[in-house]
Design a protein around this nucleic acid. Structure first.
Length: 345
DNA sequence: CGACGGGACGC
DNA sequence: CGACGGGACGC
């Protein structure tokens, strides 16, 4: 059952997923929001499979462009795995996103179009204040106040997503044009635009057509820093730099690199280490395809090391340089590209 | 000091 | 003044 509800990270997502209302219908089915744009369905499956056996996994994509819509569904066989996924993966940082993992509601027409746009909010109103204001009208799924990117101050604009559209309608009727306690200006409450009709922020068509834009599908150009020099090296790939300190000639394709990614060796992990630790460590640096904690077959304890496969060389290099020497608990990690030690080649 | 998996295409 | 997130219900 729901553990506590209070021990889950209380962050951006205000609305409690583990609310009082019973989740009888969906104890195994999860919705995952705020996924990185480049994350594939298989990478999502890999991430959630580290918790338990996944029955099905679906990344929602735009019907015409094929672009990820940034959310998906993961259904487990066992309810306890779904609960553990919420407890350990909700709030995980992956690339430039913080994912949200919560129970999926049964799909229905009644829950669609329940998102409200609120403007005219007093600048000192917090997310909690906003929720308190809308709470009387229904079950809040998410809330958010927009802040200026530079100053971090509230823009006086926010969103409230209710569970049911009728709840949103009632909130409009009751709150639109009213003046919040302690404020002097009336607020505007109306249905939010549909993100799919995005009339804004359309990337210039040229961006799709330039020959240089050969990066993988919609990749969010997320250049590391530029303090690294990348020198093309023949047989490996065009991304391969010289970086003699990281990639030596003894590292042949098939070791650090296999056709679809770069394998990283992580040493000095604690015996109790689980896969989600590796996701937490490497996820922020870029696309992670898979992680593996190596365990002793008898004790089932981690043997002190594991592997992480990342898609892009540049991101792998930054991850290695950032995490090598990083202190995790009371252990100093050693992180490098995988070599082919062990049982003689 | 210690240290680099594992399952597995395809006849 | 207006302002539309971090693509939230199976695209």
């Amino acid at each position: 059952m729901m553990a506590n509800g209070m021990d889950t990270v209380v962050q951006q997502n205000g609305g409690s997923n583990l609310g009082q209302s019973s989740q009888e219908e969906s104890k195994t089915n999860l919705i995952v929001n705020y996924l990185p744009q480049t994350m594939t369905q298989e990478e999502i499956r890999s991430l959630f499979s580290s918790i338990g056996e996944v029955e099905s996994c679906k990344l929602i994509r735009d019907k015409v462009t094929g672009q990820s819509l940034g959310y998906g569904f993961v259904n487990y066989h066992r309810p306890e795995d779904a609960e553990k996924a919420i407890n350990t993966l909700n709030g995980l940082r992956l690339q430039n996103k913080t994912i949200k993992v919560s129970y999926a509601r049964p799909s229905s027409e009644a829950i669609k179009g329940a998102n409200l746009y609120v403007s005219g909010l007093p600048k000192n109103m917090t997310q909690q204040d906003l929720e308190s204001l809308f709470n009387p009208y229904g079950r809040i799924i998410t809330s958010r106040i927009l802040c200026d990117n530079i100053t971090g101050l509230s823009k006086g604009v926010g969103f409230i997503r209710f569970d049911q559209r009728v709840e949103a309608e009632r909130a409009i009727q009751e709150l639109n044009g009213t003046i919040p306690k302690g404020s002097t200006e009336p607020i505007t409450v109306k249905f939010a635009n549909n993100p799919s009709n995005n009339s804004k922020a359309i990337p210039p068509l040229a961006a799709y057509l330039t020959p240089q834009a050969t990066r993988r599908f919609g990749g969010p150009i997320h250049h590391p820093t530029g303090r690294f020099r990348y020198i093309p090296l023949s047989p490996l790939s065009r991304y391969s730099p010289l970086a003699g300190d990281l990639l030596t000639n003894s590292m042949l394709p098939g070791n650090a690199m296999n056709g679809s990614g770069w394998c990283i060796f992580v040493y000095n992990l604690a015996p109790e280490t689980e896969e989600n630790v590796l996701w937490q460590l490497f996820g922020p640096f870029g696309a992670v395809q898979s992680v593996k904690v190596i365990r002793d077959l008898q004790t089932n304890k981690c043997k002190g090391f594991g592997f992480v496969t990342m898609t892009n060389y540049e991101e792998a290099v930054v991850a290695i340089q950032s995490l090598n020497g990083y202190t995790l608990g009371n252990r100093v990690l050693q992180v490098s590209f995988k070599t082919n030690k062990s049982k003689a080649a």
